[in-house]
Lab assay of single mutants.
Amino acid sequence: VLKALERTRQLDIPDEKTMPVLMKLLEEAGGNWSYIKLDNYTALVDAIYSVED
Rank of each mutant, 00 (worst) to 15 (best):
39 D>W: 08
9 R>A: 04
22 L>D: 00
38 L>K: 15
21 V>R: 03
25 L>S: 01
45 V>H: 02
34 S>G: 12
11 L>K: 04
30 G>Y: 08
24 K>P: 00
8 T>D: 01
45 V>N: 00
36 I>E: 01
46 D>A: 14
35 Y>T: 14
42 T>Y: 11
1 V>S: 04
1 V>K: 05
25 L>M: 14
37 K>T: 14
45 V>S: 01
44 L>F: 02
44 L>S: 01
1 V>W: 15
45 V>C: 03
52 E>A: 13
10 Q>R: 08
46 D>R: 14
33 W>A: 01
4 A>W: 05
41 Y>D: 01
1 V>G: 04
11 L>A: 06
10 Q>V: 07
26 L>V: 05
19 M>T: 05
41 Y>V: 01
4 A>I: 05
4 A>R: 02
38 L>I: 11
4 A>F: 05
53 D>A: 15
27 E>A: 13
6 E>R: 07
25 L>T: 01
22 L>V: 03
20 P>D: 08
14 P>M: 05
16 E>R: 08
35 Y>C: 10
45 V>D: 01
51 V>A: 14
40 N>I: 05
41 Y>H: 01
25 L>F: 04
20 P>Y: 12
8 T>M: 13
46 D>M: 14
44 L>N: 01
44 L>I: 04
19 M>R: 04
49 Y>F: 13
27 E>D: 11
5 L>V: 03
36 I>Y: 03
17 K>N: 06
4 A>Y: 05
36 I>S: 00
31 G>N: 10
15 D>A: 03
2 L>Y: 09
41 Y>I: 04
52 E>I: 14
24 K>C: 07
47 A>R: 09
12 D>V: 05
43 A>S: 08
24 K>D: 05
22 L>S: 00
24 K>S: 07
23 M>H: 07
40 N>K: 06
13 I>F: 06
12 D>M: 14
10 Q>S: 13
15 D>M: 04
35 Y>G: 11
22 L>N: 00
19 M>H: 05
52 E>Q: 13
45 V>T: 06
31 G>V: 05
11 L>D: 03
53 D>V: 14
4 A>H: 03
23 M>V: 08
31 G>R: 04
39 D>N: 15
20 P>N: 08
40 N>S: 07
16 E>M: 08
37 K>Q: 15
30 G>A: 09
46 D>P: 01
3 K>P: 05
16 E>V: 09
24 K>W: 09
33 W>N: 00
17 K>D: 07
47 A>F: 06
21 V>K: 04
48 I>L: 09
32 N>C: 09
23 M>D: 05
49 Y>H: 11
27 E>Q: 12
25 L>K: 02
43 A>H: 09
14 P>S: 08
14 P>A: 08
37 K>E: 15
44 L>Y: 02
2 L>V: 11
41 Y>L: 04
14 P>C: 06
42 T>P: 01
43 A>P: 12
34 S>E: 15
19 M>G: 02
37 K>W: 12
40 N>G: 07
34 S>M: 12
23 M>S: 07
7 R>C: 09
36 I>F: 03
5 L>Y: 00
30 G>T: 05
23 M>Q: 08
26 L>Q: 02
7 R>K: 06
12 D>A: 13
53 D>G: 14
39 D>C: 08
23 M>N: 07
6 E>G: 05
51 V>F: 12
5 L>W: 00
30 G>Q: 12
21 V>M: 07
52 E>M: 14
50 S>I: 10
22 L>Y: 00
48 I>H: 00
41 Y>A: 00
25 L>W: 04
18 T>K: 02
29 A>V: 13
25 L>H: 00
41 Y>E: 00
29 A>D: 06
43 A>Y: 10
9 R>D: 02
42 T>N: 13
5 L>T: 03
25 L>P: 00
40 N>D: 10
45 V>G: 01
4 A>P: 03
50 S>H: 11
40 N>C: 06
6 E>I: 11
53 D>R: 14
13 I>W: 03
30 G>N: 13
12 D>G: 15
15 D>Q: 02
16 E>T: 10
3 K>I: 07
15 D>G: 03
13 I>C: 04
23 M>L: 13
45 V>P: 01
47 A>C: 06
15 D>Y: 06
7 R>N: 03
47 A>H: 06
28 E>Q: 12
33 W>T: 00
18 T>G: 02
17 K>E: 07
40 N>A: 06
48 I>P: 00
50 S>T: 11
2 L>C: 15
36 I>K: 00
35 Y>Q: 12
36 I>L: 08
17 K>Y: 08
35 Y>E: 10
16 E>G: 08
30 G>E: 11
38 L>Q: 15
7 R>I: 12
4 A>S: 03
32 N>P: 02
1 V>A: 06
1 V>I: 15
40 N>M: 06
5 L>Q: 03
40 N>Y: 06
11 L>H: 06
14 P>L: 06
29 A>E: 08
33 W>H: 02
39 D>T: 05
37 K>H: 10
8 T>Q: 02
10 Q>H: 08
38 L>N: 11
17 K>Q: 10
45 V>F: 05
4 A>Q: 03
5 L>M: 04
18 T>Q: 02
37 K>Y: 11
2 L>F: 09
20 P>K: 12
25 L>D: 00
43 A>W: 08
9 R>M: 04
51 V>Q: 14
52 E>L: 13
32 N>A: 08
18 T>H: 03
47 A>S: 07
24 K>N: 07
51 V>Y: 14
17 K>L: 12
53 D>P: 14
37 K>G: 11
2 L>A: 15
9 R>S: 04
50 S>K: 14
16 E>H: 13
3 K>V: 07
27 E>T: 10
43 A>T: 09
17 K>C: 10
20 P>T: 10
52 E>K: 13
